[in-house]
Nucleic acid binder design. Structure first.
Length: 277
DNA sequence: ACACGCTCCTGAACGC
DNA sequence: TGCGTTCAGGAGCGTG
């Protein structure tokens, strides 16, 4: 599923229930995710108390009172399910955390991931800049650090196209294959353009489009193509707002020409050859 | 140091 | 209906 808006949606849903809740039990059914889930995850988290969850790139981070942070990555097919009960386990439910909130209500948080490209880990709060998955992550799209100057300094040293650059988590955190196409359509820039051909005005449009597209998608609960569900089971409704992703041979909303698809670094990339320059 | 394929895995959709 | 093939929203790793 998940790019920034989907991960943000899940993080917000978690925020509503985990804050100041006590971890009653951690049930681990599979440890062979993208990397091996640490053996001491269970004993580390149990009896600790969750604080306010937050997101970094496509990672969900939940700090605890004892000074740790639970890290969840959803990979391609991961889902978080929140229930006010402890339901029967379903296929691909790999990890389940039972919590109790301040008013003694029990909730279950279940990590389900058919393809197991995702990951669950914990780290110490002081190591947040050192963890191997977090240390090289670039700026947050909504941060003030995402500026023309920032992009210009990176792009002048690069030989790649803007589509690949948007997918590169070391530059901007959180953009994936769907939103890369959508952002470039909105910015009217062809995905194949080399980054060092981009002018100041182009960078400005890319930054503006990035913020707008991601913000709007979060508002709609993300995009459900296949897997993504919000933790309460609801779908994400940004799909109906997609302008180019998955629209091959459909009319462009800007000019009525047909949307094209080309494979860039093995990923489908959708664009309008007329609107995007 | 960088850019680019390859790869991990399951399931759904498609073609014959 | 059944079977084989292709494709999927991520991203680290090995290679050149």
């Amino acid at each position: 599923m998940p790019e920034l808006p989907e991960v943000e949606t899940v993080t917000r849903a978690l925020s509503r229930i985990v804050r100041r809740s006590k971890v009653k039990s951690v049930e681990i059914y599979r440890t062979d995710l993208r990397w091996k889930v640490p053996d001491d995850l269970k004993e580390t988290l149990e009896n600790d108390i969750f604080e306010e969850p937050f997101r970094r790139g496509k990672y969900i981070l939940i700090p605890t009172e004892k000074g740790n942070i639970l890290l969840i990555h959803l990979g391609m097919s991961g889902q978080i399910k929140i229930k006010d009960s402890i339901p029967t386990l379903l296929k691909h439910d790999h990890i389940r955390i039972i919590i109790e909130n301040k008013t003694n209500h029990i909730f279950s948080i279940t990590y389900n991931d058919p393809r197991r490209f995702g990951y669950v880990d914990y780290l110490n709060k002081v190591d947040i800049k050192k963890h191997f998955l977090l240390k090289n992550i670039g700026v947050e799209p909504f941060s003030e650090d995402l500026t023309k100057n920032y992009l210009h300094n990176i792009f002048k040293k690069k030989i790649t196209n803007i589509k690949n650059a948007l997918l590169d988590q070391k530059i901007i955190a959180g953009i994936g294959n769907i939103y890369a196409s959508e952002i470039l359509f909105k910015a009217k820039i062809k995905p194949h353009r080399n980054v060092n051909s981009l002018k100041s005005k182009d960078l400005e449009l890319i930054i503006k489009s990035t913020k707008e597209i991601l913000k709007k998608s979060i508002k709609k609960g993300g995009t459900t193509i296949k897997d993504h569900k919000q933790p309460d089971g609801k779908l994400g409704y940004f799909k109906q707002d997609l302008a180019v992703y998955g629209k091959e041979n459909k009319k462009c909303i800007g000019c009525n020409n047909l949307i094209e698809v080309s494979i860039i670094s093995n990923r489908s990339t959708f664009f309008c050859d007329y609107c995007q320059k």
